[in-house]
Write a protein that binds this DNA or RNA. Structure first.
Length: 685
DNA sequence: CCAAAGTTTAG
DNA sequence: TAAACTTTG
């Protein structure tokens, strides 16, 4: 009965961030149709500045081991390849295994959008059938549109729409019972190295707290749903308790299917609704909302692929960021003088983890009090977080920075002292992570600078010596922020006027300037006590350019013994900008229908993109272009990701008939609702 | 019933 | 911080 090997379709299955065998549509499709060769390609240099950080690489390595053993026990081998060019490596594997098909699951970060499209063209041109699937989202970004068939630009209506779609997210697929392996005798695996010697010690600690791998992810999900979920609505505000799901790293690497999460949580919710358990019901809503934010981050990334490096609201281009690496360093080290902020930063450093609320606190402090460029902070998160996720982190930082239409107000400064008493009322969190303040009474724990001298003495705290005074006073930060915003609006107005007058070189249209790189070695002298800024401090160094992230290697000092070393940033310091490839999207077809499946594609008729991963420049889909064509659930037709049109109408986030009343802030600054005009940008890029 | 005062909530 | 929602006089 066996057909000859030649006539049997041979699938190649390309794993990326879908490291599971359960509910993996690409895997399921492959298994259904023939022999399968499973592949993982490690080409981190292609990620440009977003080379994974130490903890993230550790997780990946563990997850791959786990997947490898699953695949082997199902009957197939798992090929791993070290590569500097995914495309050529894939071609190589295709040839050496005689594969006729390539299956994989979608990714939505800007780099993958471009790379996957290019790969598909490349392989299709060589007679390989390529199919791609949704394994990462409840609904594909191109399935969710508003009543005018345009993409949503704010979260709440987006999420409402997701929750009221005419069809449910696909039900999870069971793992295959057995996988027929393809011939891999000509395709040896490379041994992948994810850590260097200096990182081993720190990584060993991670294994005590975390268990990567899809089966463990599944266990964590079950444990969460049967445990903390019911109290989630109450507990999620506490910085110090393990009451969140802790699923984000599992989700990032696709060890866990969000669709499974969705269906299990909803089943639980129905039970609680039946029991009349309001808190449980609400907990499910809130938890699913945070899953929704993850969905939205992909949605935004798909519709605005530059969101990881450029503000989505155009006026933010004119914000005069404070360029102060001393601030940056103090923030990273947890030496800002604000206990809640510092505790968070120490926890992040020590564990690669941070409670969601604390992420908001430290990033909002970073942007609003220190006024450092948000991309620096995002990069540091990227390097240190176990669940570092480009789309989610870009969404978070843009939200905090006020560069989203529904983000935090630009002129709002949260006071870490008050937030401290809100999220850590007893100071336990601060005491855990700041041993130098451990003996301070709760009354003063979140504002030691106000404490009477005898109290400080009794607690062994010497401000300015073993714990810093506030690096910037809140009142000074407020004043400074007002100045910066005034300057920003002035420049924005000037620029608009210049453009209207046809004086093309609009004043300070800074996003067109090259991003400024920092010198490799920074001669910041190590001041244990960073300069304090008060109301009468001299002017700070401000710049409008959206700067590159400075190298963190050279500037981090050991302040505590437990700070192993600064491997966190060492990758960032390497020069790995050498992955140039010119991408030309000229030939993209209008509509893709290849073996029933296709992936999001990028197309640009006018411009040959010089694709430099270190600085992605992709023309962005305009609101008007959004195709409204519907997608079938699995492997259906996908709208081509279209280029900007020539129309120059700028997108508005209107707060009109939908009943969103505009705040006084918005009345003063209506531009706060206006998306950056990507079309204009892309024409000059 | 209204308005003021208090409470909650936001990624 | 500030807006929306709830409680109270």
């Amino acid at each position: 009965m066996r057909s000859s090997p030649c006539s049997k379709p041979k699938r190649r299955l390309w794993f990326r961030r879908d490291l599971r065998v359960e509910d993996n549509p690409a895997l399921a499709a492959g298994v259904r149709l023939g022999e399968v060769v499973a592949v993982f390609i490690w080409a981190p240099e292609e990620e440009g500045p977003f080379f994974p950080g130490r903890v993230s690489r550790w997780w990946l390595s563990q997850s791959l081991l786990h997947l490898d053993s699953s695949l082997r026990s199902l009957g197939t081998s798992f090929i791993t390849k070290r590569s500097f060019d995914t495309a050529s490596t894939l071609l190589e594997i295709v040839h050496s295994t005689g594969a006729t098909n390539l299956f994989f699951n979608h990714l939505y970060d800007p780099l993958s959008l471009v790379r996957d499209h290019r790969l598909k063209e490349l392989l299709t041109a060589r007679g390989i059938t390529v199919r791609s699937f949704n394994a990462d989202l409840l609904y594909e970004p191109w399935e969710v549109y508003d009543e005018n068939s345009r993409p949503f630009t704010t979260f709440a209506p987006f999420w409402n729409k997701c929750l009221s779609m005419p069809y449910d997210p696909a039900a999870p697929l069971l793992p295959p019972k057995r996988i027929t392996t393809g011939d891999v005798s000509m395709c040896p695996s490379d041994t992948l190295v994810f850590e260097d010697e200096s990182e081993k010690g720190s990584n060993a600690l991670l294994a005590r707290a975390w268990s990567p791998g899809w089966r463990n992810a599944d266990k964590s999900l079950t444990a969460f749903i049967n445990g903390p979920l019911i109290e989630y609505s109450i507990n999620r505000k506490k910085a110090d308790a393990a009451t969140t799901s802790l699923l984000s790293p599992h989700l990032h690497f696709g060890e866990l299917s969000v669709r499974k999460v969705f269906h299990l949580v909803r089943m639980k919710q129905l039970v609680w609704i039946n029991e009349g358990n309001r808190a449980g019901e609400e907990s499910c809503n809130l938890f699913m909302r945070s899953i929704g934010l993850r969905e939205y981050s992909r949605y935004l990334s798909f519709n605005h692929p530059c969101s990881h490096e450029r503000p989505l609201l155009s006026h933010l281009r004119f914000f005069p960021w404070v360029i102060d690496e001393g601030y940056f360093k103090a923030w990273r080290q947890g030496r800002t003088g604000y206990p809640l902020v510092d505790a968070g930063m120490r926890e992040l450093w020590a564990t690669g983890w941070l409670h969601d609320r604390i992420r908001v606190v430290v990033s909002s402090f970073f942007v609003k009090v220190l006024q450092l460029p948000w991309r620096w902070g995002m990069k540091y998160f990227w390097d240190t977080l176990l669940d570092a996720d480009l789309e989610s982190d870009a969404l978070g930082w843009q939200y905090i920075s006020g560069t989203l239409p529904d983000g935090r107000e630009l002129d709002r400064i949260d006071n870490p002292q008050f937030e401290g008493y809100k999220f850590d009322p007893n100071g336990e969190y601060v005491r855990r992570w700041l041993p130098e303040l451990a003996r301070l009474p709760t009354e003063w724990i979140h504002h030691p600078w106000d404490a009477p001298e005898p109290v400080l003495q009794a607690a062994g705290v010497e401000l300015g010596s073993n714990y810093p005074l506030p690096i910037v006073e809140i009142a000074a930060a407020k004043a400074r922020l007002q100045d910066a915003l005034a300057e920003m609006w002035q420049l924005e107005a000037a620029s608009r006027a210049a453009i209207e007058n046809g004086t093309e070189e609009g004043l300070g249209d800074s996003s067109e300037l090259p991003l400024i790189d920092f010198p490799e070695e920074m001669q910041m002298e190590v001041h244990l006590e960073p300069l304090r800024i008060t109301n009468n401090s001299p002017a700070v160094d401000r710049r409008h350019e959206d700067q590159m992230v400075p190298s963190m290697t050279s500037s981090v000092v050991r302040v505590e013994e437990e700070e192993v070393s600064t491997d966190v940033g060492n990758i960032a310091g390497d020069s790995r900008q050498e992955v140039p490839s010119n991408v030309n999207f000229d030939e993209a077809p209008e509509r893709e229908e290849i073996d029933g499946g296709s992936l999001p594609t990028v197309r640009d008729n006018n411009v040959v993109q010089h694709f430099n991963p270190a600085r992605l420049q992709i023309p962005v889909q305009s609101m008007e272009d959004s195709s409204s064509s519907r997608t079938e659930r699995d492997g259906g037709v996908v709208p081509v990701w279209s280029p900007p049109t020539t129309s120059s109408r700028s997108e508005q986030f209107v707060a009109d008939d939908t009943g969103i009343t505009s705040s006084s802030y918005l009345q003063r600054h209506p531009q706060s609702h206006q998306l950056i005009n990507w079309r204009q940008l892309s024409q000059t890029m």
